[in-house]
């Protein structure tokens, strides 16, 4: 872990950067418009939602877990926040409640997994359905709009700070905080420890259950942040929001070189992974690849990245 141990792992760490660079070069050659500042800002804004979720997913995957329910968590927190705002609750208070709800939904995942000893894949597969179902029940299957004109809320998805879209600023600040947590705090170290060897961690006096509950809560919280941005951008909450978001987030983590078995990886890679996916989405559009074929290309890139990663480790 942590940029050390051997040359091999250093190579592994820079691989995502090289991949991103290559993809960006190819797209720029095919369509130079890609590299314009306005388009790159656009890419970053598109990336921010996936990146926020992928940051949280990195923590979860580092502990050796997985969370399939993030897309549903995003939808439910978005719907509840929007519902509160539409019914006249103070927007700031509504948003804080939304964030809290996200963390609670994540904590429920964590508790089922840690205390109930249910495999993360199964546990979150179930809550994915439950959270989505609750969203549909709550919204009656219809979008919620009429969210008022609170400046804070509107800025969240559409505003700019020093010329940078607020979602991008949110992503960068979150990244900085999360990077610091992973690298410098005992919590971050314990996340790696639990994923690296849960039994040894417990036998070292680490409360592994608590760490797991925390990482799922953190992911829920970040999904809620992403949902606020999305709701603000669309000025409405969609009951089907966030479908397949979990897969993009997992893809970003894996592209970034984090091991699905836990214990190894870093959040910088996840950021690059999210950028690769964002650049592909945007660039394939620019060079005129049809949306159907885009999916094939995206899948192939992920596969290629993982295969190359395998080669290096063995």
């Amino acid at each position: 872990m942590q940029l050390k141990t051997s040359n091999q792992s250093v190579l592994q760490k820079i691989a995502p950067f090289i991949g991103l660079f290559l993809i960006m070069s190819i797209i720029t050659i095919l369509n130079p418009d890609f590299i314009s500042v306005s388009n790159l800002m656009n890419v970053l804004r598109q990336v921010s939602i996936n990146a926020l979720i992928a940051f949280g997913m990195t923590f979860v995957i580092l502990t050796g877990g997985i969370d399939l329910s993030v897309g549903s968590t995003l939808a439910l927190t978005g719907a509840v926040t929007a519902g509160l705002m539409a019914s006249g609750v103070d927007p700031i208070f509504a948003m804080l409640l939304g964030l809290l709800l996200g963390a609670v939904l994540g904590a429920i995942n964590g508790i089922i997994i840690a205390k109930g000893k249910v495999a993360p894949f199964i546990a979150t597969l179930a809550t994915m359905t439950i959270y989505r179902g609750l969203t549909l029940v709550y919204t009656d299957g219809r979008p919620i709009s009429g969210l008022g004109d609170s400046l804070t809320f509107q800025m969240l998805g559409k505003g700019y700070f020093l010329g940078i879209p607020i979602p991008v600023v949110t992503m960068i600040i979150s990244f900085a905080i999360l990077y610091f947590i992973l690298k410098k705090t005992t919590f971050g170290r314990r996340v790696y420890a639990v994923g690296g060897n849960e039994e040894a961690s417990i036998l070292s006096g680490i409360n592994a259950d608590r760490i797991k509950i925390y990482v799922y809560s953190l992911l829920g919280l970040l999904a809620a942040v992403a949902s606020l941005i999305l709701t603000s951008r669309l000025n409405s909450a969609q009951p089907t929001a966030g479908e397949m978001f979990e897969l993009d987030a997992i893809a970003a983590v894996v592209l970034g070189g984090t091991s699905l078995t836990g214990g190894r990886g870093w959040i910088v890679g996840t950021l690059i992974g999210a950028l690769i996916i964002g650049v592909l989405n945007n660039g394939l559009n620019l060079i005129g690849v049809t949306s159907f074929f885009q999916q094939v290309v995206k899948g192939a890139v992920i596969l290629l990245a993982v295969l190359l990663d395998r080669k290096k480790t063995t």
Partner: peptide
């Protein structure tokens, strides 16, 4: 299987039982 996190460095392994002693307010 029970004593070490084999992917951790030696230093990180030694620290595993001693986070309280090497950190302040959660910062290592």
């Amino acid at each position: 299987s029970e004593g070490l996190v084999v992917d951790f460095s030696v230093e990180e392994n030694v620290s595993m039982t001693n986070y309280a002693a090497i950190s302040k307010n959660g910062l290592i």
